[in-house]
């Protein structure tokens, strides 16, 4: 590792941390201007003005925003995400399980979709303009065009209800073996794979086709090398940077964007937790979830940039 690469990596990591800090401010401000009032939400229609004022005082809603932000940030830095306003539980503890579940679902969706998307991208470049290319594009694009909730209900109806191959509700518990767990979440995985596959596959295809225009691809063809090997040896190593970027965007989407799928399959993940507490105006929970989602997003993109930097031979081997 040379000093130039190290400098770029340090810069990139520092930028990531700065971004998380800025996002924390935006999340805080965003939750401040949310309509509604947690005290009102807790006490409901029957609240009297006095009880509302008391509850607000008790929940610390009357302290100035800057002071509240600083104490929130200080807590977060020490690993304390605060307590839920609605049920009084420690948010960190409640989230830990659910974040684990969400990451479990996202990880398996990624393990299946990323290699599949790249292989399909390679195959469609190999058969560019012929039927395998057209078939792959048609199928993946159709899959992405159907809204996730609709795809979820379609699978639920046919695969779970009619055929009975998989449970329609993705419930997990600690006594299940890995295989049982995977069986339980097979339908949400299938939906997520279909959602992210097309984007990654199309970008892999586009990045490869872009590189295929290069003079060194012609050189390889004039060496009499098989087209599949030309793509694998000469085109793919030069397309890694754009491919990794789109893969990471989709992985981030898998973690952050699964809200709908989790709700449909009643999966005990972050998405459902967030949706429940937005409805109850539970600001500390919304803030904590928002911050975690943002951190995942920023971290994955940072990871993509780091891979791009490391994949660049000009940076790895300077003159």
């Amino acid at each position: 590792m040379n000093s130039l690469v190290l400098k770029l990596l340090v810069q990139r990591v520092a930028l990531g941390l700065l971004l998380i800090f800025l996002v924390s401010i935006m999340i805080f401000l965003g939750t401040q201007i949310l309509p509604g009032d947690v005290a009102q939400a807790i006490l409901g229609q029957t609240a009297t003005p006095e009880s509302l004022a008391n509850l607000r005082e008790e929940l610390g809603l009357n302290v100035p925003p800057l002071e509240r932000y600083l104490s929130w940030l200080g807590g977060v830095l020490q690993g304390d995400l605060g307590t839920s306003l609605t049920n009084g539980r420690d948010i960190g503890a409640s989230i830990a399980d659910r974040l684990g579940n969400t990451l479990f679902l996202a990880m398996w969706a990624a393990i299946i979709s990323v290699p599949l998307a790249i292989i399909l991208g390679l195959v469609s470049v190999l058969y560019r303009g012929r039927w395998p290319d057209k078939l792959i594009s048609a199928v993946t694009l159709s899959a992405i065009s159907v809204p996730e909730f609709m795809m979820s209900y379609i699978l639920m109806y046919y695969v779970a209800v009619q055929l009975g191959w998989a449970p329609s509700v993705a419930m997990l518990n600690d006594r299940m073996s890995l295989l049982d767990k995977l069986h339980a979440i097979s339908l949400p995985i299938a939906v997520l794979v279909m959602v992210v596959l097309a984007h990654m596959m199309r970008m892999t295809r586009a990045a490869l086709l872009n590189v295929m225009q290069s003079a060194y691809i012609e050189t390889a063809e004039l060496k009499g090398i098989r087209r599949s090997l030309v793509i694998w040896r000469h085109a793919f190593p030069n397309s890694i940077a754009p491919i990794v970027n789109v893969v990471m965007l989709n992985m981030a989407y898998l973690v952050v964007g699964v809200v709908v799928v989790e709700v449909v399959f009643v999966y005990p993940g972050m998405g459902q937790y967030l949706v429940d507490h937005v409805a109850k105006r539970d600001v500390p929970v919304v803030q904590a979830c928002g911050l975690i989602f943002a951190a995942v997003y920023i971290f994955l993109n940072m990871f993509a940039d780091i891979v791009s930097i490391l994949a660049n031979p000009r940076l790895r081997h300077p003159k």
Partner: peptide, 15 residues
């Protein structure tokens, strides 16, 4: 075999 005009473009930068 073939020798191209721009060797700079005709070599794969990643190998």
């Amino acid at each position: 075999t073939y020798v191209a005009q721009s060797a700079a473009a005709a070599f794969n930068p990643a190998k």
